[in-house]
Design a protein around this nucleic acid. Structure first.
Length: 404
RNA sequence: GUGGGAUUAGCUCAGCUGGUUAGAGCACUGGUUUGUGGUGCCGGGGGUCACGGGUUCGAAUCCCGCAUCCCACCCCA
């Protein structure tokens, strides 16, 4: 038997596909209410795109990409995340030169070659949005409120963690002071942190090693080193969230794993899905368009992990709907088929191809969660009528077939 | 990539220290004699016990390998 590859799942169970499609409905509707429109970009991109955007120091690019040389000798890879492709499309379409604001949402599969576990797949699905052209912190707040709206509508509980990563004015200085701090404790930190000091020093802050964490208690905090602009934006952001009743916690160690973030960084986490607890994450990435050879364009966005989310969604109760049609007589089956086809012009309608007794049909109709069970037996066939039972109201009537 | 646990019917699981045709509940399916469901009763189908080796007179049960899932590390959505 051929099985799916490790970490790659089918979404076909009732409690999966229903939640999956319901999530997309809700997320899409909310994004459209915020003025975002759909964008679809390729699953396969040039490897260089991710090296330059996500960053070579990140684990995603360093060891998790599905990368290969195609038949035209191009170095390509399956996208490990969604932002880079959208930014590439934005620049390629010269929207950076067009100016103005551009807001996109997308969803689809992402690929990372990781060791699978609960909430961590090799092929997984993200829903995300990207907003270009606005450097206003109001847009950062709008992103966060959009995530909150989606989660609230889905009945998903969360905690929001917030941080500011600074910009090109304050981040480099902070990085220098952090590096000198790390050097002062270098003897005692873990091997990973020693490596991080060289590749991406900010990342030592979210090292999970307890000993390291204890040492970093005294590390300089980025939040205290922000330049005036970053600090006032961060304060403004907090104010906006307060005014809109969005609860948050400041997490000074929240460092997003992708290199392109600056200023606002946020993460929505859940305590109910195991150790892979981040359900949405995002932030501002004002430099990324420039890094990918576009005109400098401020941008902000987020992504949500759909598989993690659907574990948490509370589905609204499903109501009976549509018609179930059945014959109790072999002679009536053809009539059932044509009647069903007629109904399908306007309503959901399913039918049974075999003649069955009434009890069996009612059982089928009930199982199909149909609202109406409609039967033609020998009596009805003779009189040109159809027997219709409303399974919810428990009412039944016999109507002329032409009026049905 | 490292360490640990699990793997028996579509699903959730039982199967004691190796011993005759591997079980249950749910699900599926058929019937339940005059045409009434979700909630009665009776019956039926379905498992090379993940896969590959080994030990043994005999393996779902013991050993080795391998795959997948789960947990932790790591990483992130």
């Amino acid at each position: 038997m051929i099985k799916s590859l490790r970490g790659m799942n089918d979404i076909l169970e009732e409690n999966e596909y229903k939640r999956f499609t319901y999530f997309l409905q809700v997320a899409t509707a909310v994004a459209q209410r915020y003025g975002f429109h759909y964008i679809e970009t390729p699953l396969l991109e040039e490897t260089a795109l991710f090296k330059r955007s996500v960053g070579e120091s990140s684990d995603i690019v360093g060891k998790e990409m599905y990368q290969f040389i195609d038949k035209g000798e191009n170095d390509v890879c399956l996208r490990p995340e969604g932002t880079a492709g959208v930014v590439r499309a934005f620049i390629q379409k010269k929207l950076d030169r067009a100016g103005g604001t551009h807001r996109f949402f997308y969803y689809g599969p992402m690929f990372r070659y990781e060791r699978p576990q609960k909430g961590r797949l090799r092929e997984f699905h993200q829903f995300g949005v990207e907003s270009f052209g606005l450097d206003s912190v109001y847009e950062d707040a709008a992103m966060i409120m959009m995530v909150a709206d989606i989660l609230n509508e889905l009945g998903v509980g969360y905690r929001l963690q917030l941080n500011s990563l600074g910009d090109q004015n304050c981040m480099p200085q902070y990085r220098d002071s952090l590096v000198s701090f790390i050097e002062s404790v270098e003897e005692e930190i873990c091997e990973d942190c020693k490596r991080r000091k060289e590749t991406n020093p900010i990342r030592v802050l979210d090292c999970k090693n307890e000993k390291c964490q204890a040492l970093y208690e005294n590390a300089p905090k980025l939040i205290n080193a922000l330049c005036d602009g970053c600090e006032s934006d961060f304060n403004k952001l907090k104010k906006i969230l307060d005014a809109n009743n969005i609860a948050y916690e400041i997490d000074t160690n929240l460092v997003r794993g992708l290199d392109y973030y600056s200023k606002t960084a946020f993460e929505f986490v859940s305590d109910n899905i195991g150790s892979q607890s981040a359900i949405a994450g995002g932030g501002r990435y004002d430099r990324l368009v420039e890094f990918l050879d576009g005109r400098p364009t401020p941008a902000v966005g987020f992504a949500m992990g759909i598989e993690r989310l659907i574990e948490l969604i509370e589905m609204p109760q499903e109501k009976r709907s549509g018609y179930y049609l059945g014959a109790m007589d072999d002679e009536a089956v053809d009539l059932i088929i044509t009647t069903t086809q007629k109904k399908r012009k306007s309503d959901k309608a399913t039918c049974e191809y075999r003649a069955r007794n009434l009890k069996a049909h009612l059982k089928n109709a009930d199982k199909a969660n149909a609202r109406y069970c409609c039967i033609i037996g020998s009596n009805e066939l003779e009189n040109g009528t159809i027997w219709v039972k409303d399974l919810e109201e428990k009412r039944e009537e016999t109507v002329k077939l032409k009026d049905f």
